[in-house]
């Protein structure tokens, strides 16, 4: 037991080896490598169309890679469906918020725990004792999570009626409700105003401390990335062009070229 726990601790949360994704003639991701130790807060940046979201889609199992391997907590995810990958401890948010708009906020959080329900159809119909305990646990956990995110007042509200910033927050809360070890944030600051962004930075930092979770985020707001991330990876046209701590990235010539073009230099 202690042995496996130790193994888990030392094993990388996410390891990607030579990942390549081909869409027809387009090579969206090419020879991508990453190895994440638990507890990091890593950034992924690159110009529009660089393949950042594709990487996230590959990690969350939405696409099957053309070649290469993705290991989540030491388990190869090849051939797995997204919900199975989520079961291994990956959760994510989306660039365009994808909440279930006609379900209450509380239900949004509850359904995201679908992977660890531990009961099936017949338990639900019979309302067995097992069902009752599990269901009340789930509800309690969901309410606690809402409270932690200061969303408890909206529990019976529909997400579509919430402010944009609150929806972003709810989506992060929903992702965390499956108790992931790796949280993928796909442009969490998109569409937020500057005060919302300040709050988002506080929120992400606080989640990172509070939830024992590795965070990997895509973001176009450089100040957010520079402030939050301990390590940043830059890709362009699917290829990794630079990586390192924020200061290195800021002055990296390849990064400046990728974002601003050759002429400037």
């Amino acid at each position: 037991m202690t042995e496996t726990v130790k193994n888990r601790e030392s094993a990388p949360v996410l390891e990607i080896r030579n990942l390549t994704q081909q869409f027809g003639g387009l090579r969206a991701v090419s020879d991508f490598n990453v190895c994440m130790k638990p507890g990091g807060l890593i950034g992924l940046i690159g110009p529009n169309g660089a393949g950042k979201t594709t990487v996230f889609n590959l990690v969350s199992g939405f696409y099957q890679p053309t070649s290469g391997a993705i290991l989540v907590n030491g388990v190869d995810t090849a051939g797995m469906k997204p919900h199975q990958v989520t079961g291994l401890g990956v959760a994510r948010t989306f660039q365009n918020i994808r909440l279930w708009n006609d379900m209450s906020v509380l239900d949004n959080i509850r359904v995201a725990q679908h992977g660890k329900l531990q009961y099936g159809f017949f338990h639900a119909i019979a309302r067995s004792a097992h069902y009752q305990t599990r269901e009340s646990q789930i509800e309690q956990e969901a309410r606690e999570l809402l409270e932690v995110f200061d969303l408890q007042d909206f529990a019976d509200e529909y997400p579509k009626n919430l402010a944009y910033g609150t929806q972003r927050k709810l989506e992060i809360a929903r992702a965390l409700s499956s108790k992931p070890s790796l949280l993928l944030l796909d442009e969490p600051a998109a569409g937020l105003n500057s005060s919302d962004i300040r709050e988002l930075i506080r929120l992400v930092r606080w989640i990172h401390g509070h939830f024992d979770v590795t965070i990997w985020m895509i973001e176009h707001h450089m100040d957010v990335m520079m402030e939050l991330c301990t390590h940043i990876k830059v890709i362009d046209f699917g290829e990794t062009i630079a990586e390192g701590i924020p200061e290195e990235i800021r002055n990296h010539p390849a990064v400046i070229t990728a974002y601003l073009g050759d002429e400037i230099i």
């Binding site: 939405f62 006609d102 379900m103 359904v111 725990q113 009961y119 099936g120 338990h123």
Partner: peptide
């Protein structure tokens, strides 16, 4: 009623509203 009001059965509504999100949020859509 019991089916649709359980968390298990609410997965059905999740599929209706956003199937991609449901699958990625650990609902075994199939």
């Amino acid at each position: 009623r019991r089916y649709v009001s359980s968390t298990f059965g609410k997965g059905v509504n999740a599929i209706c509203q956003d199937e991609v999100a449901a699958e990625i949020m650990s609902v075994n859509t199939n």
